[in-house]
């Protein structure tokens, strides 16, 4: 999970909810890893088969608001399509995000989903690039 390669994700502690964090060489990779971290808060991502496609589009005034929008569009897709996702292809241009997520319908016995994500919050919300050029995208999700 938390291995040192070019992109990865992790959870960080929050008292009532869960902090999610994605790293990548590009902002797109960091966003896609943050999405994986969010799904991992719900279930074991490796058990979600990337079979059905969901297109997502959103735009926001800055990268941080864009991260929250991206995650919330996924939360919406999970809720109305009763699906979980495991693969993400993200493109960002001029604060516009176009992405494709792949997943499958929720199978309660196989996926064992622990929590329902109510929404991504602005708590601990950060999107930045470090001096080595690595991107990090994080926030707390309300579960």
């Amino acid at each position: 999970m938390n291995y040192r390669k070019e992109c990865y994700w992790e959870h960080f502690a929050h008292e009532a909810d869960i902090g999610i964090r994605g790293y990548g060489n590009t902002i797109e990779m960091a966003f896609s890893q943050a999405a994986t971290a969010m799904i991992a808060a719900i279930c074991d991502v490796s058990k979600v088969k990337p079979m059905i496609r969901q297109d997502i589009y959103c735009e926001a005034p800055d990268n941080e608001l864009l991260l929250v929008d991206w995650l919330n569009e996924l939360v919406y897709a999970i809720a109305v399509r009763h699906m979980l996702f495991s693969q993400f292809d993200v493109n960002i241009e001029n604060s516009c995000l176009k992405a494709t997520a792949w997943g499958e319908p929720i199978d309660i016995s196989r996926h064992q989903p622990a929590v329902e994500v109510k929404g991504a919050t602005y708590t601990e919300l950060k999107v930045n690039k470090d001096s080595n050029g690595k991107w990090m995208a994080q926030c707390v999700i309300d579960v």
């Binding site: 608001l65 919330n72 919406y76 809720a79 109305v80 109510k118 919050t121 602005y122």
Partner: peptide, 17 residues
């Protein structure tokens, strides 16, 4: 349920902006 969660999400953003 989902209705309240979505209202919270949408208005949090509107109020930030």
């Amino acid at each position: 349920r989902g209705l309240g969660h979505q209202i919270g999400t949408e208005f949090l953003k509107r109020m930030v902006i």
